[in-house]
Every structure is written in structure tokens, then in C-alpha cells.
Amino acid sequence: MHGSTVPDLRSKNSQNSLSSGGAKRMTVSSVLVVGGGITGCVAAIALAQRGTEVVLVERSPQWFGVGHGITVQGNALKVFRDIGVLDPILEKGRGFDQVRMRLADGTDLANIDVARTGGADLPATMGALRSDIQNVLVAKIRELGVEVRLATELVGFETVDDRVRAELSDGRTEFYDVVVAADGIKSATRRQLGMPEDKQPSGMGIWRAVVGRTPEMSVSGLYYGGPAYKVGFTPISDELCYAYVLTEPERPDNGLSDAAEMRRLLDGYGGDVPHIRDQITEDTFLNFQPIEWLLVKGSWHRGRVIAIGDAVHACPPLIAQGAAQCAEDALLLADHLTREGDMEKLLTEFEERRRPRVELVVQASLQLVEWEVSPTPDADPGGVMERSLKALAEPA
């Protein structure tokens, strides 16, 4: 055990709301959220808006948006609207409704109207800088007065009756009604919960860059059949796009700089790709990483500690549903945690409602990866994306 102070963060009113058997509660009054990415931020915001006292711990010593571009679908935008952050996010991003599919030489294959998974009144898809979305969420958390502790991790926990004793890396030991682990695909909490699953390689890697775009690059573009598995881009503003190359999972040791390597991978493509390639210089900030995935088949919780988001279901980004599924998890969990009822039942009902949806996304994404790595004559990536998004247009 760390530390000697053991504060009870529940309010007096919430302690008095317990039923005679201690099994029911009007709402949880205190929640520890572990992880400050999209999942953790949405969970913290939604819980705070429902009157719950929230502490958010983030292992990074600095808390500001990082990363390259991101594509988010309408169901993510719906969550952002529900927690009151949609307008500033739309102001920073670029909404659109189509995906343009082409052969590597630029020949058109199909233009697909993207299903409006968030409803008819929201863009079907939006491109943005991941940092811009993160910064909007952080600002909302600050506005709500959520306590945030940086450079802090959850190192141990135990459910004791109707509370969780949480041991933190800053030496504190505190009690919460529930702990929500939103600490990503590398989640330490997942392992502590005893889940046997771990992140798995997909067989692909991804290069990312943010570059200028032409006015014609106003919707997502996908290029098939070239030297790489796939090249694509998503507009993220009136001037910029997020460009990427899906390739082998390991960065070759070929003596090339990152910029030269990405330009090499873009050789042999037509259409809009030469415009992207020409803008990549030695000063362009580039990122390469292998693409991994995860799907926890069993329970996501033990006692009053539950893992959500990428900690239990992380998908390759081929249908751009990662952020959306994480945000849906967080909002729905906040709703369940603030209902009256037995906590074990509430957490189980939450998982049962979410599991079919996230499994659909992970399996569809893995099917697309398989077709990218091993093309087959009957491959139908456009159809899989279209059918998956139409299914996700149903309420979460």
C-alpha cells in the first residue's frame, strides 16, 4: 500500500443513499478515470455533467493534443454533440460525405456516399487534427472543474464492498465508487484485471503526414493496387489533409530518411498522390508505427473496475471507427453508472449492449486488412465499409 491517507471521496449524501443491503445506489458519486485520451476525456466529461465527482489521472507529464490527423464518423460527432463540444470541434475540422476510391494510377473506381451514422443533421465524416479534438475535450474538462493529475498512474486496486481502493503512483491511496480504465491498447489495468488477451499485430504498418491539399481534395481519397497496400488522405481543413500509406509492419533499414522513405512509397501513384508526395520534405513531421488490434472476448470488468475503449477493443483504422467506438463506450458507461441499480448488473448490461457493436467494427476492419495484405478476386472493401457503417447508423 502507498501512503497513509485514505480519503473517502464519496459525498455524505451518496453514502446515505445506499439501500439496506448496500447493493443499490441512486448514482455513483465518485469515479476515477485512468487515461486522458478521447475515451477518458469523454467519460470524465459525461460523468461530471451528471453530477459525479471525477478524478482523471494521466501518465503523461504534459496534457495537450498530440498526433497527426484523424478521421471520425458521424456517430462520434453525435457523442461530441451530446457532451456539448461539437461546435468547436466542427470549427476546427472538415466535414464531408463521400469516399472516392481509385486505382493507383488515378482511375476512378467508385464514389461512395458514407452512411450518416450520427443522424441526418450531422456530417457523415469529419477529418481533423487529433490534437485539435483533444484540446477541445481538455478545455471542457477544465470548464467542468474535473480534477486532473498528470504524470500519475493506477498501480493497484481492490474492490472492497461497494468501493474500490485505488493505489496511485503519486503515493496516494484513495477510495472511489468505480474505476474506469481508459488507458489504451497497452493498458496496464487490463492485465491487472486478469484479461488474457493482448494487442496483436495486424500485418500492416502506417506512415502518416499532414500536408497541404488542393480544392479538389475535398473528400477522402483511397488508392488501391499500387506498390503499397493502400494510400489515402482525408481533408482536415480548407487547406490541409491528413495523408497516410499502409505498408509493411516494419520500417525497412534502407538508409533513407523518413521523408525519403515516405516519398518512395508514394512513387507509382497518380491522381492526387503526386501533390501529396511533392510536399513531403525533411522538415515534415512524419510518424510510422505498426498497426495492432485487440478484442477482449470475456468480461471487461472485475468488481467495480471496468476497462473500456482501446483497452478492450482496438481496431485497425480502415473504417475510421476507433474514436467513435471509444466515445460511444464512454458516454454509454456514464449513463449506466448514474442509473439506480445493482452495480454488477449495470456493468454487465453495459458490456452486453456494447459487445456486438465493437465486435462488428473489429471484425470488419480485420477483413479489410486481410484483403489489403492478400488481395483476392472477390474482395469487396467498399461493400464492407458501406455495410458496416449502415449497421452503425443504428443507435449505439
Rank of each mutant, 00 (worst) to 15 (best):
240 L>D: 14
267 D>N: 12
21 G>K: 09
186 K>D: 13
89 I>M: 11
370 E>S: 15
352 E>W: 01
119 G>M: 03
335 D>H: 15
3 G>N: 08
310 D>K: 10
266 L>A: 00
91 E>C: 08
334 A>N: 12
75 N>D: 06
37 G>D: 03
80 F>A: 07
365 S>P: 06
90 L>E: 04
180 V>L: 03
356 P>L: 06
79 V>E: 08
108 D>Q: 14
312 V>N: 03
385 M>P: 08
101 M>W: 03
108 D>I: 12
100 R>K: 10
125 T>M: 14
357 R>N: 04
149 R>W: 00
213 R>K: 15
197 E>R: 12
7 P>C: 07
261 E>Y: 06
327 A>Y: 07
12 K>N: 13
281 T>S: 12
120 A>R: 14
375 P>M: 10
377 P>D: 02
122 L>P: 02
86 L>H: 09
303 G>R: 05
49 Q>G: 08
66 V>P: 00
53 E>F: 08
369 V>C: 09
183 D>F: 05
317 P>C: 06
188 A>I: 09
178 V>H: 08
23 A>L: 13
262 M>C: 05
222 L>Y: 00
92 K>C: 03
9 L>E: 00
383 G>R: 14
368 L>S: 04
327 A>W: 11
123 P>I: 07
41 C>I: 00
195 M>F: 01
315 C>T: 12
56 L>G: 08
46 A>G: 10
359 E>R: 15
28 V>H: 10
84 G>W: 06
250 E>P: 07
81 R>E: 11
30 S>C: 10
212 G>F: 00
155 V>M: 07
126 M>K: 06
365 S>E: 02
32 L>C: 04
28 V>C: 13
163 R>H: 06
127 G>T: 01
315 C>Q: 14
322 G>C: 12
352 E>G: 03
340 E>K: 13
320 A>Y: 01
280 I>H: 05
271 G>S: 05
321 Q>K: 10
350 F>W: 14
246 L>K: 00
18 L>F: 08
11 S>N: 08
285 F>Y: 11
134 Q>H: 15
345 K>T: 14
41 C>R: 10
2 H>N: 14
179 V>A: 01
338 T>R: 11
206 I>E: 00
41 C>G: 10
166 A>W: 00
372 E>N: 14
198 D>H: 14
166 A>M: 05
276 I>E: 03
159 T>P: 11
225 G>H: 00
312 V>I: 15
385 M>L: 14
20 S>H: 10
318 L>M: 06
90 L>N: 03
185 I>A: 10
381 P>H: 02
361 V>M: 12
168 L>Y: 04
268 G>D: 01
332 L>N: 14
239 E>W: 02
